[in-house]
Amino acid sequence: MGRGGGGAALSLRVEHLSLRYATGVEVLQDVSLEVAPGEFVSVVGPSGCGKSTLLNVVAGLADRRADVERSGRVTWNGREIHTASDWVGELGYVFQRDTLLPWFTLHQNVELGLRIRGVPREQREQRVRELVRLVGLEGFEHVFPHQLSGGMRQRAQLLRTLAYEPKVILMDEPFGALDAHTRLGLQREVTEMWAQLRNTVLFVTHDLTEAIVMAQRVVLMSHRPGRVVQVYEVPFGYPRDPIELQGRREFALLHAEIWQGLAQEFRAQDAEREAERLGV
């Protein structure tokens, strides 16, 4: 698997990204990150550390209000990203919140990206049928989102993203709102699908176990303002089974190692909040 410096022009790069509000609140501090083509990288850090902001900046969705000071840049294929349209349709984004359009059926939601690309109807139908079968949603094609369970909705959102085959997929705690069992199932499904498709993935989560079982590399971010503390290699190949993986000794060792760093960030964040509360 190519990763790191190789094919620099083709990778997704975040270079010295800093972001602060005019009020003085610093969200991101000199974040640099490179994701090679076809690489799965997860970002883990305490909540409120700017992980989601990072994804929004990468997607070109971050607000460009006058009171946001920003330096550094994001490039994809050497092209600088300012707004979502700079991705020219090569980006997929799976949100934590269900963002299926409630007035469209599952089928209609999944084919949206294809409609934007002007794919003819018969091809769309066929593609949707394939995808729906892939995650076992057959029979629910013509059902509205409110009639689906949380896990099904998240699967549908995933299909909507995979349908138009984006080169880069950003995921913002996509399983955060699901129960543990559904979550495990989806983790397995996504790693299986990714092992075949090999899109470039940047996956944000606050769950360390999830970060390790899914990705090739884990980026540990500090508490606010978010910095990259360290990057860890995950020594497991694909296809992998997230459930089986969690029982392995290598997993336990890696988890313990990253946990030390993460725990330190938790403690530092707690200490800072306490200090703020006491008005120090």
Partner: peptide
């Protein structure tokens, strides 16, 4: 705004 963003990210323009 999240629904708007979802369509924009897929490459949708203001018409979509």
């Amino acid at each position: 705004p999240d629904l708007v963003r979802a369509v924009q990210v897929m490459g949708g323009g203001s018409r979509h």
